[in-house]
Simulated scan of single mutants.
Amino acid sequence: MHDAITRRRPPTDDDGLEHWTAPPCHKSGRRMGRHARAARRVGLICLWTLIASGPQAILIRRHGTAKIRFARFFWAKVCVLLGLHVQVRGTLAGTFRDRRAVARGERPVIFVANHSSWLDIPVVGGVLPTVFVAKSEIAGWPIIGTLARLGRTIFVSRQRNNTGRELQDMTDRLADGDNLLLFPEGTSTDGSRVLPFLSSFFAVAKPGRLEQAGAPVPPKVLIQPVSVVYDRLEGLPVGRARRSVFSWYGDMDLAPHIWKIGQWRSMRASVVLHPPIDPEQFRTRKELANAVHRIVNEGAAELRQDRRDDA
């Protein structure tokens, strides 16, 4: 199984995009104001994380849905502290449930989204009642790894000998009533397109003979395609050049990107929750992956072309 957020090489300075990735800086006073804004936001997010870690550390040891509800509240608050407004279109298919609900026949939901930035985590995390699936390297990252574990993230690797264990982890979570979130592009992008989805990510939704051999069968699920686009920057529509403000991919370092994001006064992400689909309606995993990709891709394209001032 491929990892969820391996990143592509970023544009170089020769691409002429670096000029667009930071707020305009005409006077030193304004520059100091933007730096103060970024410092305040980073500080508040660190403080909020410290405050929230205690309750979540307790909740993840208990049965019930409180740990998922609190995680969603945590990420929504991070967006507020960043000055990032999240606009949601469509109806949420997933809900909060437990193992008994799944045993009665209720279907967990696997959310499938496009992926262009670390910002996708707080954006969709604040909207969806879900558990993330992320690459195993994140578990060792300072602070981020701790947050991921507190959010009960499922870590996956590229090693084939771990595939069975990772599928088992996902199966167990679904059976417990959790929803999952997948980024099946296998990488983050520059935000201008949605790469083809890797069918291996859909193994838990449509297991084949190899996955089923000697392992518990995952509960029946629904898949809800999700399109995410960052479409407003300080009240103005985001074109192709300014899309690089939000994108985090390739060899980009995380800390400088967070610092730049924190300097902008306001931002907006639009999230489209498409109608859920039943994996059993597709003959093969590849057909399922292609169908979900088409929905997410078309939704993202429509959001990028939408220039209505409805912020």
Rank of each mutant, 00 (worst) to 15 (best):
Thr130Cys: 06
Ile68Asn: 08
Asp14Phe: 13
Asp172Ala: 13
Ser244Asn: 11
Ile295Lys: 00
Thr12Asp: 15
Leu44Lys: 12
Arg104His: 14
Phe183Asp: 05
Glu302Ala: 14
Pro279Asn: 03
Leu236His: 07
Ala66Pro: 01
Glu18Ala: 14
Ala300Trp: 05
Gly126Ala: 01
Leu181Val: 09
Glu287Lys: 07
Val292Leu: 08
Tyr230Asp: 10
Arg265Val: 10
Ile58Asp: 08
Val271Ser: 04
Lys27Thr: 15
Val80Arg: 14
Arg285Trp: 05
Gly140Lys: 08
Leu59Cys: 02
Phe73Met: 10
Gly64Trp: 12
Arg7Ser: 06
Phe246Ile: 02
Gly140Asp: 14
Ala103His: 04
Arg100Gly: 00
Thr91Cys: 10
Leu92Arg: 15
Ser53Thr: 13
Val229Pro: 04
Ser244Glu: 15
His115Gln: 01
Arg8Ala: 13
Glu106Lys: 11
Pro129Arg: 06
His63Met: 10
Thr187Asn: 11
Gly191Tyr: 04
Pro129Glu: 05
Thr189Gly: 03
Val226Gln: 06
Ile51Glu: 09
Thr65Tyr: 05
Arg160Val: 13
Leu236Thr: 13
Ser200Trp: 11
Gly29Ser: 13
Val204Trp: 14
Ala36Leu: 14
Arg30Val: 07
Phe74Glu: 08
Trp75Cys: 04
Leu288Asp: 11
Cys79Val: 08
Gln281Pro: 00
Thr12Met: 09
Ala103Asp: 09
Tyr230Gln: 08
Met170Thr: 04
Ala148His: 10
Leu233Cys: 05
Pro184Tyr: 04
Ser136Tyr: 07
Val86Arg: 11
Ile277Pro: 00
Ala103Gly: 01
Val221Gln: 01
Arg283Tyr: 00
Asp190Phe: 02
Asp178Glu: 14
Trp259Pro: 04
Pro275Lys: 02
Leu84Trp: 01
Gln281Leu: 15
Asp98Pro: 01
Ala71Glu: 12
Gly54Glu: 03
Gln87Glu: 11
Leu59Ala: 12
Asp15Arg: 03
Glu166Arg: 10
Trp264Phe: 15
Leu181Glu: 00
Pro55Met: 00
Thr189Ser: 14
Leu92Asp: 12
Leu50Tyr: 11
Phe111Asn: 06
Leu47Cys: 06
Gly299Ile: 09
Thr163His: 11
Pro11Leu: 12
Arg240Glu: 15
Val226Arg: 07
Asp98Ser: 08
Gln168Lys: 03
Asp231Lys: 06
Ala38Pro: 05
Ile110Leu: 01
Ile223Ser: 04
Ala4Ile: 01
Val221His: 01
Pro108Cys: 06
Arg9Trp: 11
His85Asn: 04
Val245Thr: 03
Thr12Tyr: 06
Asp176Phe: 03
Leu44Ser: 08
Pro218Val: 03
Leu180Tyr: 04
Leu198Cys: 02
Val292Gly: 05
Arg149Asn: 14
Arg209Lys: 14
Leu182Asp: 06
Val238Leu: 10
Ala36Ser: 08
Gln56Met: 15
Ala134Lys: 05
Met170Lys: 04
Arg242Asp: 12
Gly151Lys: 00
Phe282Ser: 07
Glu166Cys: 11
Pro24Gly: 09
Ala93Ser: 15
Val127Phe: 03
Pro184Asp: 07
Ile258Gln: 09
Gly250Trp: 08
Gln87Thr: 15
Glu280Phe: 07
Asn114Val: 12
Asp310Phe: 04
Ser53Glu: 10
Cys79Tyr: 03
Val124Arg: 06
Arg89Leu: 13
Thr153Ser: 09
His274Ser: 11
Glu298Tyr: 00
Gly186Tyr: 10
Gly54Pro: 08
Ser116Val: 01
